[in-house]
Design a binder for these strands. Structure first.
Lengths: 121, 121
DNA sequence: ATTATAGTTGAACAATTATTCAACTATTAG
DNA sequence: CTAATAGTTGAATAATTGTTCAACTATAAT
């Protein structure tokens, strides 16, 4: 049984089922796609951002309204909206002093529903 | 316009659209459900765990195989499998010295697909 | 012009977390 | 029994991250 070496990085154990490993390796999506996918879930992996997303799914809202709804400071909300913007999960429009945020994409709700299905099981 | 007070915790701004806030507040799911949902996504929000999940979706695998596939130590893999177990995302069976892990639930793949749809848009 | 409000931003702090390391258990082989 | 291997676990470390704070911009009102 062979010690596993990839480049000059060593793994601390032997392959037990080489055939399975090779087969799975061939079917795995490209590295960077898996990184993007985990980054996407990371954005949803915070209760404040989940609440914001859930609220915006119900109605377009401004920063102050979200701050009142979640009982947080404008700054905290604004920082999280920045993350959500970077992930293309929300969009905004400006009207005078007020900035209105809304979901940039309707199908996020479907992911929420699937997630709820899982945790309710 | 009234300053917002919930219990003895203060928000740093005024309500702008009180009607919207009230309406959304009534439609929001219970706090603890939103916490559970964000915890669920938090587990998927790590590239190592995403890779493990993707691999296990292809085939049942033991800890060493996963370690070789992802070029990581058994310990690192085992720790992450612990998180996945706690989140009820994987199950395992023991055969001699070897522990085989597999997905505890098929419909996680659907969430992955939805996630990929989003990041590819 | 001045004042007030909506929102953003960067730095700092505290909390969380992924990986490493070493020690450990359990099972198998000799 | 002893040695070797598969896997787990707790503590420590390093990196990441959510919130706070203070300073800032932009728009609106007097």
């Amino acid at each position: 049984m062979t010690k596993t070496v990839k480049g000059d990085i060593y793994c601390d154990c032997d392959v037990i089922h080489g055939d399975v490993v090779d087969c799975v390796k061939n079917k795995m999506p490209p590295e960077d796609e898996l990184y993007d996918l985990s980054d996407f879930f990371k954005v949803l992996g915070d209760s404040t951002r989940i609440k914001i997303m859930w609220a915006l799914d119900e109605s377009e809202m401004c920063v102050c309204d979200l701050a009142v709804l979640l009982n947080m400071t404008k700054s905290a909300i604004s920082h999280q909206l920045h993350s959500l913007r970077q992930a293309n999960l929300v969009k905004y429009r400006k009207e005078g002093k007020v900035v209105y945020y809304s979901l940039s994409d309707d199908h996020v709700k479907e992911i929420f529903e699937k997630g709820l299905e899982h945790i309710r099981e």
